[in-house]
């Protein structure tokens, strides 16, 4: 899933400062999963902003709504009936959500309230870990199911760099050395010899083909 974190309230307040009628718009998908922009967080942010506005004696209207998904136009269109009430939308969607709303409702500014972060897994309650860069060319099968692209700080493909110590990355002892994990895993199922081959340079064009990547599936289309 896509993860994100709410921006500092000051930054949000500054962004919405010019507007008087604001819709705080949550998204019940990925960002709800990482407790950043779901219905609950949306209600909390809206209430916080109302309190802040009251404290400053500002006369603003701040209301909240949460869409099932902000990145799908069929959900975004549901705002059509209410959008005219507002002069700005503060979106807790991920970057994709913010843009989908912005593309549909060109008449109002759509302001991001969260910083979209990464594709990750929920490691534990309240702990999300980046595990995929969306490179478009998965090669986890070579690496024992651990991605060196997402999880090695240097994105190395041919083994740990000289900075690995005790299974930890040189950049920070909190970070596990992805290559250490890969070596461990492959050792466990006796496939370490795989790593003796030199892994060729990666085809990054699937990640950065130039401009936004697209997936078009004719079988899915109308």
């Amino acid at each position: 899933m896509i993860t994100g974190e709410q921006k500092p309230i000051d930054e949000i307040r500054e962004m919405i400062a010019p507007y008087k009628r604001i819709l705080v718009l949550g998204c019940a998908s990925c960002v709800a999963e990482c407790a950043a922009g779901g219905e609950k967080e949306t209600a909390m942010l809206a209430s916080t902003l109302r309190i802040a506005a009251k404290m400053k004696g500002e006369d603003v209207l701040i209301e909240e709504k949460t869409l099932d998904r902000q990145c799908v136009r069929d959900f975004v269109i549901l705002l059509d009936d209410i959008i005219e009430k507002y002069d700005a939308v503060l979106s807790l969607g991920c970057g994709a959500g913010v843009q989908a709303v912005a593309e549909m409702f060109t008449e109002v500014p759509i302001i991001p309230a969260i910083n979209t972060e990464f594709l990750g897994e929920t490691r534990d309650q309240g702990y999300w870990l980046e595990s995929c860069l969306g490179c478009g060319d998965c090669m986890l099968h070579h690496f024992g199911g651990i991605c060196p692209v997402a999880r090695c700080s240097k994105q190395l493909f041919n083994g740990p760099c000289g900075g690995a110590m005790d299974g930890r990355c040189e950049i920070n002892p909190d970070v596990e050395c992805a290559w250490h994990l890969i070596v461990d895993r492959l050792t466990k199922f006796g496939a370490l010899d795989r790593l003796e081959n030199i892994y060729p340079p990666k085809d990054w064009s699937k990640k950065q083909g130039g401009g936004p990547r697209k997936i078009v599936r004719e079988d899915q289309q109308k």
Partner: peptide
């Protein structure tokens, strides 16, 4: 209904 730990 606690949300913390919710698997969504």
């Amino acid at each position: 209904a606690w949300e913390e730990g919710c698997l969504k």
